[in-house]
Design a protein around this nucleic acid. Structure first.
Lengths: 260, 260
DNA sequence: CAGTGGTCTAGACCACATG
DNA sequence: ATGTGGTCTAGACCACTGG
């Protein structure tokens, strides 16, 4: 009762509904559409908890399995998350964010007036494995810095990333990064004022359990995966970044190199 | 019996298996992994039909619902397709194709040694709606050409696209296109030898029923959606293309404008 | 017509998280 | 100890497709 999430168990929006078995659309889809409307209308706020599946199924007059089919769809779309033993929660209005490719993906979010938060999960020294060595043109075993972060827009985690950087080029990484949590600031402090994107890759997949927990998703939700390499003005590779994004929340935009 | 798809109903790979209810992974996932291994080993070939769900469930010693959970996952990953009233079919080994962004996405496939087929679904004259007008910088209602195609790599449909082009700039479109099914040839025939990508957008979603039928997918399978605009050497917009790709089959690569 | 996948019911047990 | 979501069973009816 004293939790910090809103409880909506007695909201009247769930009861008294008529779902006809054969009215051109399956029942689970009608439930899906109805709950989606509640979310998009703001009658279900992000972070709030839904009634238990047993109760919900009762309110809608269907079996739990039928109800779960509707919830499953909503989870795949990123509208709901479930935590085993806890409950089902409204995740966000995954309105498409436009993410432009420049040196960094996230700049355009701030320009959009979104509140962007960065959580640093891991910052450690390590040695390059084969993949990192290939991406950064380093020998295998070269010292690197590993930085894992999660970024949230308007309170909803939307992007989990791991950056690998050559440690030799950035001896003061930890000290500078601690001040502002900004990789750009670290580059500037090491005399790298300008850097640019060398390659970007976008692929698709399904969230692993780790990605799911970082992004507050249900495992096996479809996601984007990005891999990008940045270089300094001379073309030296200084950063390899891999990221994971909720499929329905982003919209990658690539402008032409010479717009006019 | 005389169909052109291989029948595998009596393949021994489905029977005699032991799926323990509580061996650290749920039964449906064990079935998923087992069937996936059959596909990746080549014991189930693309295009072949699986035994009916009732039979399969019997062979695996589980309920149809449990079996369906495994099949559902395999469908979302693009390994299987189901057609209501017909059956479940092996779709392909969705090995990631690398698609590079240049003027056209598909050039790199041919270079990969893949057999690329193009099927033209629609070629018609139309008038620009608001969206097309905005993308091509035309007045609403301007005459345009609409071209809908599906492309397949190694026999598996992988890309459905709709192109909108300004009809006034390409008066001989239909005649030239009929010869080689090539839009590039049409441009050349109209004196447009060089054209380049102005903007590319990549977003994610779930296959509509139309997209699903074009790509031989189950509806609501996660997909990429692309939108790209090409311009001629002078910067005039000459082509707006929207596409749909199976999420697990492609890997978009964007190289830097000045690689070295 | 027979066989298929799509939907739905009415139960049950389990692992997990919380108080 | 309680309530949650995750899994599973054993049936059933339907709409669709093909011969």
């Amino acid at each position: 009762m004293s939790s910090n999430v809103s409880r909506i168990a007695d909201t009247p929006d769930f009861g008294g509904l008529v779902f006809r078995p054969r009215s051109d659309a399956p029942i689970w889809q009608q439930i899906h559409d109805h709950v989606l409307a509640l979310i998009e209308d703001g009658r279900l706020l992000p972070g709030s908890q839904l009634p238990g599946e047993v109760h919900l199924a009762e309110m809608f007059g269907v079996t739990r399995i039928t109800l779960r089919q509707a919830l499953l769809q909503l989870q795949q779309e990123g509208h709901l998350t479930s935590r085993k033993g806890v409950g089902v929660f409204v995740r966000s209005p995954p309105s498409a964010l436009s993410v432009r490719d420049g040196s960094r993906f996230f700049d355009s979010l701030r320009a959009d007036g979104k509140l962007v938060e960065t959580h640093t999960l891991v910052l450690e020294e390590d040695f390059a494995d084969a993949a990192a060595a290939a991406q950064l043109h380093l020998p295998v075993g070269a010292p690197v810095i590993r930085l894992c972060r999660v970024r949230a827009a308007d309170g909803q985690p939307i992007h989990a990333s791991t950056k690998i950087l050559p440690a030799r080029l950035l001896p003061d990484f930890a000290a500078v990064y601690a001040r502002r949590q900004s990789v750009t600031d670290v580059f500037v402090a090491h005399g790298i004022g300008k850097y640019r994107r060398i390659e970007t890759r976008i692929s698709g997949g399904f969230a692993t359990v780790e990605e799911a927990s970082q992004l507050a998703l249900t495992p096996s939700t479809p996601v984007f995966r990005t891999s990008s390499v940045n270089g300094d003005a001379a073309g030296n590779r200084i950063e390899w970044s891999t990221g994971c994004w909720l499929l329905t929340s982003v919209d990658f935009v690539f402008d032409a190199p010479h717009p006019r």
